[in-house]
Design a protein around this nucleic acid. Structure first.
Lengths: 229, 229
DNA sequence: CCAAAAGTGTTGGTCTTACACCCATGC
DNA sequence: GCATGGGTGTAAGACCAACACTTTTGG
């Protein structure tokens, strides 16, 4: 059996591809799941919207670069962060060869203060399930992120990062319904979510306009970066 | 709220990190799940075993680079291939900054002819669940790959790439038991695997030393690269 | 006729879904 | 007292795990 040896590599003549992270930052706002988009300023995609991202620093891990990107755009530290997938087709950015590691981040809306930064023309929140056509291959990234958050919702505590530390089961259910984009049976939801054993019931009630509701909290508020490894 | 701007990037003074792929290549041999390791020749990990890998070519996608690596080491084309995770800690390779995209590949044992290539000191198959300590962060990569293949086994047709085109249910069950490393109930296995609807029963029998068994085939032999996107 | 693998069904338990009524409060 | 959301239980069906005997062949 004959086999070829490796073709030309970046290591010699060409220089290396650039390595970037792109982050899909979700939050809950206006009763919807929203994600943060920035408007590209230069290059072939100028004017198009995209997920915020940037090159990975020389001394940074990928996770740190993603964390930094979240911080620079939203001011939020310690957001939930999870690696999604790495995109590396040579033609995905016509200007330069960029390999991009995509991340999913979740931030609490009340902690956010947006920072457009000079490198973007604009910045803003868009409904996650009705995004415009995006620059690069970011349409794919968006679909992947949405699938990931919806499936993780089923068996993890990731929503802790979208909620205040205390909440009622009704509020929690609203969050699930918003993200999954369908309504759930209240009795079954409560049974299932309590069976997961991620919540603790607090000895307090929230008094509102109607019958007071028990407050709950997540037992663990961590798992900033999901260790898939 | 105050926020810092980006630290030093690779884009300026430093040059970029190198981008590599590392591939966990599994096969079935000697009744076990085995994976291919190569012995590192140079650098701080010289003498250690690692998963085969290499830099991504200037005109290559990441998938293509992984495919090429599989081909160069084993001579197998069109193997099953799936991206796992991307590792990018600055210190993961003490010699240079390398961002590595890890892949999982499955090859049929009978199609393999190993090619050590000059860049490695040695090459060989090792039992997947008893690997030696590996170079770089490849211990992590190996654990991740093993978890991934085991879980994918449950709901996909990925084993088609480890089997000949026709096989008996007994042979199929053996493959599952080998990979999962536990024994399964024959009756339940048959019910479940047939219920998945991935197999078709052929109008043939395999005659062996005992009662002839029906032959089966996968309805679809593709999904070379799993589109998670 | 014996050894070895192929082939097949049923039962009990668990999990999931669908569904309806009473309760506590504010206004 | 009524509107609003909070709180709870049960029954039917789907799914899963455990389990034993008969069949077909080669030697």
């Amino acid at each position: 059996m004959s086999r070829v040896e490796s073709p030309r590599r970046f290591s010699d003549s060409q220089g290396h591809p650039w390595v970037a992270v792109d982050v899909v930052i979700y939050t809950l706002g206006r009763g919807r799941l929203e994600c943060l988009l920035v408007q590209v300023k230069e290059g072939p995609f100028a004017g198009k919207w995209a997920f915020p991202g940037g090159l990975v620093g020389a001394e940074e891990s990928l996770d740190q670069a993603a964390e930094r990107e979240v911080y620079e755009r939203t001011g939020v530290k310690n957001s939930y962060l999870e690696q999604l997938y790495t995109f590396g087709k040579p033609e995905r950015d016509p200007a330069t060869r960029v390999v991009s590691v995509s991340y999913l981040a979740l931030v609490a809306h009340r902690e956010v203060s947006l920072n457009p930064a000079s490198k973007y023309a604009d910045i803003g929140w868009f409904p996650a399930n009705r995004l415009p056509r995006l620059a690069y291959d970011h349409d794919q990234v968006g679909r992947l992120a949405l699938r990931r958050i919806r499936s993780k919702l089923q068996y993890t505590n990731i929503v802790y990062s979208l909620l205040p530390s205390e909440f009622t089961l009704g509020e929690l259910q609203e969050v699930y319904e918003t993200i999954l984009h369908r309504s759930l049976d209240r009795r079954n939801f409560r049974k299932k979510i309590l069976a997961l054993g991620l919540l603790k019931r607090l000895p307090k009630k929230r008094r509102g306009t109607h019958r007071p509701a028990s407050l709950y909290a997540f037992m663990k508020r961590r798992q900033m970066i999901i260790e898939m490894v």
